[in-house]
């Protein structure tokens, strides 16, 4: 930068003078580039705030009519009578997400470990596309598969089996619904959608573990499984937490696939084989009719706001947890 301020010599050759013009232009380009790119970077934060702001503004009419606890915890959803209790949808969303995560997380972490640690590179060439393909299939196709395969499977196999063997221990496994369109079906479809996300990140995390750490453990006589356990729990934990949070967000807000298999019953579920309804499905399903009923649109925007807040707070929570861990010096 100081180059420009050097005293200019009259006997400087012409070429150099052109060069300094060139320099000045490049510096301006650099500054303009910095301004534009920096503005775009900050605009992402602006976008996040704008989404929250617009949803909040559109949801205001209903927030003025009913209190927040009433909206969140009331179980009566009767838009025609002006009652917008979202508890059935919130519970339905949580239940579906929980089933999906309980199925997907163990399967995905085990698969990720196998891909990273045990598989020969030739076999991985065959298996890697499996996760890539699963990640690429569109949600609506998952929904279609859910309707054609998972729902009949739940109706004919899973629900009767659980009713016979597990319902005695917990009524949440009772076979209450002859259709098969249920929390269980939605959870199973979602688990396969979330699976590739968690597998990919787990595998990357394990591969990124420093070789020395691993060799040191082998030198102590650990089996490969013990090495994996230690590296995954110590060095890999942040990555795995990130993967699970991402999978959770995806499952929590998935719309079309869930909408097609969850049954869309606005009632508090008592069993995982009950039909249910999720927040995202609620928004998507009532798009057509919401103009005719007063406050309906506002309620749907409120549902969108709930989705946004849950996803943001989950991600912020994970971020705080991870940075705190890092500040403590990590454990690896």
């Amino acid at each position: 930068m100081d180059r420009q301020q050097e005293p200019r010599n009259a006997s400087q050759p012409a070429g150099l003078r052109v060069d300094s013009m060139h320099h000045r232009m490049r510096r301006w380009q650099d500054r303009i580039g910095q301004a534009i790119m920096g503005a775009l970077a900050w605009s992402l934060l602006g976008l996040l705030l704008a989404i929250g702001g617009v949803l909040l503004l559109r949801a205001l009419p209903i927030l003025e009519r009913a209190s927040v606890p009433e909206l969140l915890f009331s179980t009566t959803w009767q838009p025609m009578r002006g009652l917008f209790g979202m508890a059935p949808f919130i519970v339905g969303t949580i239940a579906v997400t929980l089933v999906a995560m309980l199925v997907a997380v163990p399967l995905a972490i085990l698969s990720g470990i196998y891909l990273a640690e045990y598989m020969t590179s030739r076999a991985r060439l065959f298996f890697k596309p499996v996760t890539d393909l699963l990640a690429g299939i569109p949600p609506v196709v998952y929904g279609l598969w859910g309707v054609l395969v998972v729902v009949p499977f739940v109706r004919n196999e899973l629900a009767p089996w659980a009713d016979r063997n597990l319902a005695a221990y917990c009524s949440c496994f009772a076979n209450t619904n002859p259709s098969g369109y249920s929390i269980a079906a939605a959870g199973l479809v979602l688990s396969l959608m979330v699976y590739p996300i968690i597998v990919t990140i787990t595998e990357e995390v394990l591969r990124a573990v420093p070789r020395e750490l691993r060799e040191a453990l082998f030198a102590l006589g650990a089996t490969r499984w013990e090495v994996t356990k230690v590296t995954l729990l110590r060095a890999g934990l942040p990555g795995v937490v990130a993967a699970v949070v991402l999978g959770f967000s995806r499952a929590f807000g998935e719309t079309l696939a869930v909408l097609m298999v969850v049954g869309n019953v606005p009632r508090m579920p008592g069993s995982i084989f009950d039909g249910s309804y999720t927040l995202a499905a609620l928004i998507a399903n009532n798009y057509g009719e919401m103009m005719s009923v007063p406050l309906y649109e506002s309620a749907l925007m409120g549902a969108g706001l709930v989705l946004l807040l849950v996803v943001v707070s989950f991600n912020l929570g994970a971020w705080l947890f991870l940075t705190r861990r890092l500040k403590r010096g990590g454990e690896a």
Partner: peptide, 14 residues
């Protein structure tokens, strides 16, 4: 990261 996990329906509603 937050936007990556944001459900696409939220963008639609926005």
């Amino acid at each position: 990261n937050i936007l990556w996990g944001m459900p696409s329906i939220v963008f639609g509603v926005f």
